[in-house]
Nucleic acid binder design. Sequence first.
DNA 1: GTCTATAGATCGATAGAC
DNA 2: GTCTATCGATCTATAGAC
Lengths: 205, 205
Amino acid sequence: MARPKNGETDRSNSSDKVEKILQGAMQQFLAYGYASTSMDKVAEAAGVSKATVYSHFQDKEGLFRALIERLARKRFQLILGTQPLKGEPYVVLRRLAKTALNQMINDPEYQAFERLLMGESARFPELAQVFIASIAKPAIETISQYLAARSELNIPDPEATARILIGSLVHFVITQEIMHGKNIMPMESDRLIDALTHLIVNCVK
Amino acid sequence: MARPKNGETDRSNSSDKVEKILQGAMQQFLAYGYASTSMDKVAEAAGVSKATVYSHFQDKEGLFRALIERLARKRFQLILGTQPLKGEPYVVLRRLAKTALNQMINDPEYQAFERLLMGESARFPELAQVFIASIAKPAIETISQYLAARSELNIPDPEATARILIGSLVHFVITQEIMHGKNIMPMESDRLIDALTHLIVNCVK
DNA sequence: GTCTATAGATCGATAGAC
DNA sequence: GTCTATCGATCTATAGAC
């Protein structure tokens, strides 16, 4: 397995196994949560023995922390990868809201990540804070700066307004998708987007 | 223990124990989550034997469902107990936002409940839906009807706007308290309230 | 480094005495 | 109805062979 390619010496470090372990851990923790995930299942999903897992990570908690920090970094890249906010507010804010909503709604991994972090935020407060610092805070700052730069919007408190924008979008995904409310109180994404842009753009005081 | 009072026959039904079990279960499930709560600890916290727990509830899952449905009913009462929305929009919406925020921020049980439901929403989707149907939906409807009734606000979509209002408030509590973000990205509640009321009230098109 | 095998603790659930 | 005692499964973590 994992034979060296032509002309290469065998570089199959143990890093290969670390990667496989993290993949297996991600699959299990995101699906079953922290407490219900067993190290046996992680090893099985990773295709290695349990002892190998313990040779690369100190214990279950250490593996969990490493995984969450890795996932937070990955999500941070996805945020930064978005094009900078520039242009007419009505167009920019609409596109931003639509893009963010679609990404969150169509990304089961994001939803599982949010579930896991919230569910474990009492027992792993520092991990919830990693999420806040590397994802929520940069997102708010980016939007806040855009809102502040468009002086024609006349927004008294851009940062608070950015929180309203993001909070509305995230909470919509929480109620409709994560907590399975879309059949109980259905609403098209576009209605939320319309109402949001109307509030922010059409309100010059 | 639990002797009949003067003139009463012994009415210490097993209902007394059911109540104690539910109290113990609430303490444990809210603190440790579903998987990490053991039936031994529940019995200990309730002050009864484990066999007694199993004589009143079919299994761990049944006890958990009964508890969540009970907590949802309790929260529903708290919502309905609020005075009906009536009066000038600026005053009403400000007071509503301030009251809701203060209640959520100063209620650790609410925060633990939200954590538990979100964390288990993949494994107990119907319980998350109980929360949506009995808490989120009535709250949105109440606010939506108020917004629709105040025609001078000129709100094109009251229901979507109600979601924006509630979503902003709940998400603020999630980031600041539940996910422990208040030291990382601090913000006074009043700033959010000001920005929200400004957006909704001062925007007549 | 990676494996198999297993120790030791704890889990959910029940049998049987009272 | 409520208890004590216990079963069998499963868990985290490690010892020791290769």
